[in-house]
Amino acid sequence: MAVSSFVITDVTARAGRARPLAGALLVASLWLACAGPAAAQTEIADPLESVNRKVFVFNDTLDQYVLEPVARGFRFVTPRFVRTGLRNFIDNLKTPVVLANDLFQAEPTRATQTIGRFMFNTIVGVGGLVDVGGLLGMPERHHEDFGQTLAVYGIGTGPYLMVPFIGPSNPRDLVGSAVDLVFDPLTFIAPSSVNYGRRGADIVSFREANIENFDEFRRSSLDLYAATRTLTEQLRSSEIRNGAPPDQDSIYDEDIYDLEDPAADAAN
């Protein structure tokens, strides 16, 4: 997955794949039923902005008073190799979901990479604690989920949603999270305490890895809500395109806004 450490994603976006809310799901299914395929958007539809902003303040407070302190504590008490091992272990557990979605998106090469890495890491890498695939020079680990699969099938996101405790999402990705639970054997074979523990570890581990990036992001943003919204959307689209560059040439055209001649504009 493109866990960018230069920019940040909201940790809770990822956690959201695991814990969909029933209510959000209902809304989501209704929306999907009537929306049909939609084109990729460059501007994010945010009709619920005023509510979303309130939820964002709540999530942000939660991050500052709970998640961030926990992440800093985690960094303080663990050596780096332990944190790396945990990260690898958690990523390895995601293999069934990634593989299922590689296949749904008809990506045999990526599916093969997913299987190969899982075999190496699980058998040679002590149950996934060591990313043997990475050490052997395999392509960077990728992430897939059913939200991305729906996007590849041409389903649009629907309105931007800021979900309490979960973070930025949208109806399509919330449905995707629910479907992904079904592809995950641990959902059925492990006790719920194990599943919750694993989600929690995933969130804390991600937040710890991005402490400096969150700090920098908060410091540089003029409007944290708007900045988070565009960042989430851009990272997600890039993930859906599997990292290929977007087609957004129009933003680089000076003349469509008459940018080249400010003097003429001022005269008008």
Partner: peptide, 22 residues
């Protein structure tokens, strides 16, 4: 350079989204 795109995140798109909101 007229844009930097880091992990799919464009400097221009990000700042435009933020500035236009303000």
């Amino acid at each position: 350079a007229i844009d930097l795109v880091v992990e799919g995140v464009s400097l221009i798109i990000s700042q435009r989204a933020e500035f236009s909101t303000v």
